[in-house]
Amino acid sequence: MIKKADIFLLIVLILIGCFSGLNSIGQFLGLIPCEALSSAKVVVSLDGKLYGTYDLSKDQTVSITRGNDINNIIIKNKKVQMTFSNCKNQYCVKEGSISMVNDTLVCLPHKLIVEIKNDEKAKIGGDVDVISG
C-alpha cells in the first residue's frame, strides 16, 4: 500500500522541513547564538505596523489595546509572556514564555506579533527564515 513515490515524497518533505528549520536546529545545537543580548528589544507589531519596542531587560507589563482587542504581555527576568488576551482561541496565552532571539508570540485574531530582537535588527519582520520565504 505504500509506494516508492510515497517514500520519496516523505524524504523530500522532511528535507524541506529540516532545511527551512536550519536556523532553529542550529540554535538548538548551539551553532547559532540565540541568547538575547542585554540590549535586546521586545518588538510589538499590530496589523503589520510597529506598535512599540520595549527593553527585554527591564521588567514591565505592557497592555496593547485596539478597539475591543486587549492583550497584556509581561516582560520579566528577560522572558516575555502573553498573560491575557480576550481573543477567541487563546493560543497566544497558551504559547507560554519566550526568551530567545527571533522567538515570537502571535495572536492571530488580533493580528498581533511580539518578537524578541537583538537591537541592531529591531525592525518588523527582520530576516527570519530567508530560505522558507
Partner: peptide, 8 residues
C-alpha cells in the same frame, strides 16, 4: 499580518 515573522 503583512509580516514574515510567522514564517519561523
Amino acid at each position: 499580518l503583512s509580516s514574515t515573522a510567522l514564517l519561523s
